[in-house]
Design a binder for these strands. Structure first.
Lengths: 136, 136
DNA sequence: GTTGACCCTATAGTTGCTATAGCCCTTAGA
DNA sequence: TCTAAGGGCTATAGCAACTATAGGGTCAAC
């Protein structure tokens, strides 16, 4: 049985990642350096495709690259306790929830500011600029 | 009546901005280059303090620096129609709302993933890693 | 035999700062 | 009068997480 092999463009298409980004992941050690063809092209197998998918999934979930490095290390150490993964996920969730709260406050204020616009037509009586000039 | 004058450290304290950041704003043209003292120290007046406050307020509201440049230009052109400011604010609000929606979806998924953890104790049966390895 | 799609490396740019090095100026205390 | 602290100055490099560009090599089809 022959191994499926991919070139970098295949990986890019299959994962929705740009070619340059895959090379970037390699340069920072997030993707392992693949074997090379006679023409010095990168040659990947299924394992690397899986790894890239894992990375992209974590990125979609908002994990930072160094967190992903950690998650990947944890996930390949099958003896390791699940708690560490759990902690990482919870910490990240808390950060996301905080960001949502911040953005909600911000959106409220922008809506408030926007509602005041109907006062004037030129900047000299623009209430938005007023609002931007003074703390709430 | 004598003009109030500030040094860069005063502006920093009064606005909660780091000194280097103020110099950075000057370097990118967001703050105008101030006058200098005999010792080549930057010397600011009330107008520049106001300008910096405006910038920081906009930053707090999540506007990007180039949007702030635009807002500042609009706000100093008092003949200009308020509509442009209104549009900028609305566009920004829409972007913020979209980001909130994205983050909410993300938080939901992280919570879902986290809830699955109670299955195993080592990585080999960790459901979080499973969840990270497969699309929802 | 040449076109076009792909691949390679290396370097610089993006945003919004922050950090560092190495120096100068001012002021208060011993 | 000396000196040390606490400002200030410039210039350069670094951070995340890519993206863009230059300048070239490879390969299959027409």
């Amino acid at each position: 049985m022959s191994k499926t092999i991919f070139r970098i463009g295949d990986l890019a298409r299959l994962t929705g990642t740009k070619v340059v980004t895959i090379r970037y992941y390699e340069s920072i050690g997030l993707m392992p350096p693949p074997e090379r063809s006679a023409a010095n092209y990168r040659v990947y197998g299924q394992a690397q495709l899986d790894r890239l998918r894992f990375i992209r999934r974590c990125r979609d979930l908002g994990f930072a690259l160094d967190q992903i490095t950690e998650l990947a290390a944890l996930s390949s150490d099958r003896q390791r306790c699940c708690d560490e993964v759990d902690t990482l996920t919870r910490t990240h969730l808390a950060a996301v929830e905080e960001k949502i709260a911040d953005l909600n406050a911000l959106a409220d204020e922008l809506r408030r500011i926007g509602d005041q616009c109907h006062g004037g037509t030129t900047i000299s009586d623009c209430r938005i600029i007023d609002a931007l000039n003074h703390r709430p």
